[in-house]
Write a protein that binds this DNA or RNA. Structure first.
Lengths: 131, 131
DNA sequence: ATGGACCCTGTAGTCACTACAGGGTCAAGC
DNA sequence: GCTTGACCCTGTAGTGACTACAGGGTCCAT
C-alpha cells in the first residue's frame, strides 16, 4: 500500500488536483485516508479508479454515465448489457453531434466562399445573419 | 413603431423569454423602452437584432463572437475582413470538434463491436477503461 | 371582482470543471 | 533553529449559455 499524494495522483493520471478534489466532492471518487497533517493519502486502487474515470471522460462519457459504469463494474457476475446500453447512448449522442456540426460546417463554408472582401455593407456573411 | 411584448418577441424568434432577458442582462441586446406597467416594449429593430443573434447561434458562433459581429455590422464602411476572420475561427473550431468526435465515435464503435454480451467480468468495454 | 395569462426582479441551478483567497504542512538548505 | 518554497487544505466563486424557480405585479375578459 504505497502512499500517493494528490499531486502525484494528478500527475500520474493527467488530472488537475482541483479536479480530483471535485470528483471526491461529488462522490465520484471515494474519500481517501488522511495523513497526520490532513493530506489526502491515495493507494493503487484509487489510481485505478481515477484512470478509469479519465479514460471514460476521454471517450465522451458524462460523469453520470461514469458513475453508473463504475457501479456496474463492481457487480462482476451481472450481464454487461447495461454497460452496452450506456455505451450505445453515448455513441448515439456523439453521432448526433457530428451530424449537427457537419451541417454547420457546410453552411459556414458556403458563406465564407461567398465573401468578396468588400465592405461590411455588402458582406455576405452578415447578410445571411440579418433578418 | 409597433409595440412587441417580450412573449411575442420570444415566439417570433424561437427564443425563450428568459433567454431574451439574459441577453439584455449581459448587454448583448439593448434594453427596450418600458410600458406604464413596467413591461418591456420592443420594436422591429429589436426583432431584427435578436433574429441576427439567434441565427448566428445556430451557426455555432459564441456570444462573444456575436457581440463582435453586431458591432462590426454597424460600421457599414469598414472592410468585412474582420467578419471573415471571426467566421473562419468559428469554422476552425467546428472542424476541430468534428475531428475529435469522429475519432471518439470510431473508438466506441470498435468497443461495441467487441461486446459478446457476457458478464460484466469479461466486458470488453470495461476492460478498455480499466487501467 | 376574479381568474388566468402574461410580465417583473432576483437568485440559484445545470455541466465539468477552473481559479482563486487565505491559510496549514513539510523537507531542504543555511 | 529558522526560513524558504513547494506542496497541501477548505471554501467560494467563476466559466458559457442558458434554464428554472419564487414571489410578486399587470392586464384583460368574464
Amino acid at each position: 500500500m504505497a502512499h500517493i499524494s494528490i499531486g502525484d495522483l494528478a500527475q500520474r493520471t493527467g488530472t488537475k488536483v482541483e479536479t480530483i478534489r471535485y470528483y471526491e466532492r461529488i462522490g465520484l471518487l471515494q474519500a481517501p485516508a488522511r495523513t497526520a497533517g490532513n493530506y489526502r493519502s491515495y493507494d493503487e486502487a484509487h489510481l485505478g479508479r481515477l484512470s478509469f474515470v479519465r479514460r471514460a471522460r476521454d471517450l465522451g462519457f458524462s460523469l453520470d454515465q461514469i458513475r453508473e459504469l463504475l457501479s456496474l463494474s463492481d457487480e462482476r457476475d451481472r450481464s454487461c448489457e447495461a454497460v452496452d446500453v450506456i455505451a450505445r447512448q453515448n455513441l448515439a449522442a456523439i453521432e448526433r453531434k457530428i451530424r449537427n456540426l457537419t451541417a454547420l460546417r457546410d453552411e459556414l463554408t458556403d458563406l465564407l466562399d461567398q465573401c468578396r472582401r468588400g465592405t461590411v455593407a455588402d458582406c455576405r456573411i452578415l447578410d445571411a445573419l440579418a433578418p
